[in-house]
Structures are given as structure tokens and as C-alpha cells.
Design a protein around this nucleic acid. Structure first.
Lengths: 210, 210
DNA sequence: AAGCGATGTAAACAAATGCTGACTTAGCCA
DNA sequence: TGGCTAAGTCAGCATTTGTTTACATCGCTT
């Protein structure tokens, strides 16, 4: 949970001048808004003033809590990385991998996998952030490859599957290409099954139904 | 060809103060530099001064020849679109589609398919540019789908193939994920063959019109 | 060779952007 | 309750960025 734990706010969102002071909530608010905007508009396409406005928080608090725009971006990145680990580290068999991926891709939550993936593709130019991005994508593909028998180029194939997921996310969220953009979980799972069957063969030899 | 036709330049690149005046060459120079930087750093991550510097041209000439940064971006986009049409409109059979794509993806030219695709994913926020991007990606996927028998969700599948190509490009050029990033044409063609065989079945017995 | 339009240059402006410092205020604890 | 620290506000700073304007100069035509 990252979006849902806020201090008791009876009715709607009370504006800043009547909201109780709460550092943790403010930081959370900033992280949420920042993640959305960074994912949608990229690092340099996002201004700290816009983030602060969406979070309904004073701009100066970004510097206070995250040291800088770069710091806020890094925080978003590591946050997304953590949650991303959660969604896939879970023991999923190769068999229900397509459905798992389809379900996540179809999620239109502002905090779902698509947003996290988009964020992962954004670069701030900072070397540390780029390193994080590379590491997480690498480990992700390694985990994917580990689900198969682990053949010769299973890692390469896993990265192609990852590429497909990223591409689908971009075409859906960022470009809005129809009919892919509004395809639901059921429609997405079909090509994903074919894709995974073709690229990530179950541990060779013994397989299931032809 | 877009990068290779410049006025006679005997030895190396003569700097601006000794280069003969030539509007067409200057425009081309700006387009080249802009396309590279827009593709690599996105729209808002690129400054007109950086473009002008790389093109070895005065900044004010961007406004003169392209009206604005937006205008320059639009020119890059339409240029990339035209060349993109060239590379795929060519009659390719479904059989050699994998090799064709692999060859293009492996191209590391500063003007190759990867750069054009990356450019196509960048948004300036301008509505017109976004429209161009959407249209070209749509027609691209339609053309891809037309290569198959044209079954029920052949368009969706074609867009998934397109998504894979985009994702591979991003992971290679923008993220640098190994081993995908340095995979050559021969290594790329293998998963692409599997992918296309699984998602774009040749007009087989069952349902094909005419 | 002269004139003149096309081409290129330099400087500057206004707006936007990231960030900082001094100040105010709320909430908690003795 | 009073005070003290954390939390939040406000205004402004130094740059960066896109664009424009006035000026210099090349090179073609006559």
C-alpha cells in the first residue's frame, strides 16, 4: 500500500491550510504526485512547482524533505523498485505468468505496474539513478529467465519478453494506440500466452499437453 | 539518405566561420542534431542551444528556419515518419519479416531505425505532434497486420509485435540492458522469429478472406 | 564592381525553473 | 499554560531557456 494510508480525513481532501501538520503524510503526498508526473512527462518535463501543486504542498518542502528535485526522483525510483520486486518475486509458475503479466498491465491504477514501468524508463541524467534502473531491469529479466529451464539464451529471451511488456505499457499509457490501449486483461492474455510459450519454453523435454 | 549529402567539405568539418553559406545545409545540420538529441534526451530534455552547438550553427537560425523549437521537433518527426515508411512499405513477405526487423534494430547508425523509433516515442506535449505519432504507429501496425491472413485480433497481435520492437529499442539504446543491448543481427533474429511465428501466423487454412 | 537580398552573428529580454533563507505557525510536552 | 521545536509559508535569488531584434557579412546578379 502506498496511496491509501493517510491520516483521518473525514470527508474530502481538506486543503493545506486546514490539514493537520504531518511530515510523513506530506512526504507521501509529494512522492505520489511526483511519481505520476515523472512517469507521464519525464524528468525534465516535470517541474517542482507542478508536483507541489498537485500534492497541495508548498514547493519549498521538496527541498526540505528530499534535498532536491533529483533527490525526489531518486526516492520515486527506489520506491517503485521496491514495489516492483513485490509484484514479481511472488512465486509464480511459468504457467500463470501470462495471466499475471496481463493482469498487471491492464491495471489502470495511478500506482499500478504501468506507472512504475514508465517511471523506470525515465532518465534524469543522474548516474546513480541510471544505475538503479539498469540493476532492477537486469534482475527482473534474470528472475524471468530463471522460471524457464535456463537454456542457452534464456536471458536474452526473457529480456525480449520484458521488452514486450515495456512496449505494451508505452503504447497503452503514453501513446494511446488502439485497440491495444483499451484492451482488457482477457484480451491481453491471449498474445501474452503465445509470446511466452514461444520465448520462454518450460524446462525442456518434459512438457505438458502438445 | 539524409545525413550524407553536404556541400563539398574537403578535409574535416570546417567550422562555421569558414564554411560557405548554405541555407539548405544549415537546415539539414539542425535537423540531424535535433533528431539525435530529441531521440536521446526527449523534447524537454533538449535545449535549442545544445542542438545549435552540436550542429555548429547559431541558435537564432532555429527560429528563422523552423519558427520555434516545436517547429523543429515537428520537422524531425515528419522526417522520421517519411523514412520510416520507406523502410517498411517495401514489399516484405511474412517469411523474411523477422530478419528485416532484426537487421533494422541492430543498426546502430545515428540515423537508423532505433533513433527514429525513439523519436516517435517522445512527446512535446503539442497536440499536432501527438497526432502524427499516433497516426504513423497506427498505420504501421495495420501494415503489419495486413501481412497475415487478417484474422480476428491480428491487429492487436501486430501491435504487440510493434510493442516488442519498441521495447527492444528502448532497452538497447536508452537503457543499455545486457545482453540485449549488444546483441547482433543474428542473435536478435532468433527470438524475433519465434515471436512472429507465434503472433503473426501466415494466412493459414482456416479463416482468410479472398 | 556594386548593390542587394539571403545568410549568419551577437546581445538581450521575459518567462520559467530549481533552490534558499528568513519568517510564521501549529502541535506537543513539561 | 508557556515555550520550543518541527512543519509550513513567503518572497526572492541566480540560472537556464526560448525567442526576438538589430546588426554584420557573404555571394549572386546585373
Amino acid at each position: 500500500m502506498s496511496t491509501s494510508s493517510r491520516p483521518p480525513t473525514p470527508v474530502a481532501a481538506r486543503s493545506a491550510d486546514q490539514r493537520p501538520r504531518n511530515a510523513a503524510d506530506t512526504q507521501h503526498r509529494l512522492l505520489d504526485a511526483a511519481r505520476r508526473q515523472f512517469a507521464r512527462n519525464g524528468y525534465s518535463g516535470t517541474t517542482v512547482r507542478d508536483i507541489a501543486a498537485e500534492a497541495d504542498v508548498n514547493v519549498a518542502l521538496i527541498s526540505r524533505y528530499f534535498r532536491s528535485k533529483e533527490g525526489l526522483f531518486a526516492a520515486c525510483l527506489t520506491g517503485a523498485v521496491d514495489e516492483l520486486g513485490d509484484t514479481i518475486t511472488a512465486e509464480v509458475s511459468l504457467a500463470d505468468l501470462p495471466l499475471t503479466i496481463a493482469r498487471q498491465l491492464a491495471e489502470s491504477d495511478t500506482d499500478g505496474l504501468p506507472t512504475r514501468l514508465l517511471l523506470l524508463l525515465r532518465s534524469s541524467g543522474d548516474e546513480g539513478a541510471d544505475r538503479i534502473r539498469l540493476d532492477v531491469l537486469k534482475s527482473f529479466s534474470v528472475r524471468l529467465a530463471a522460471l524457464t529451464g535456463g537454456g542457452e539464451d534464456s536471458l536474452l529471451n526473457a529480456q525480449v519478453v520484458l521488452a514486450t511488456s515495456l512496449g505494451i505499457t508505452v503504447l497503452r499509457s503514453s501513446v494511446g494506440l488502439e485497440p491495444l490501449a483499451s484492451a482488457g486483461e482477457q484480451e491481453l492474455v491471449v498474445p501474452l500466452e503465445a509470446l511466452i510459450a514461444a520465448l520462454l519454453p518450460p524446462a525442456s523435454g518434459l512438457s505438458k499437453d502438445s
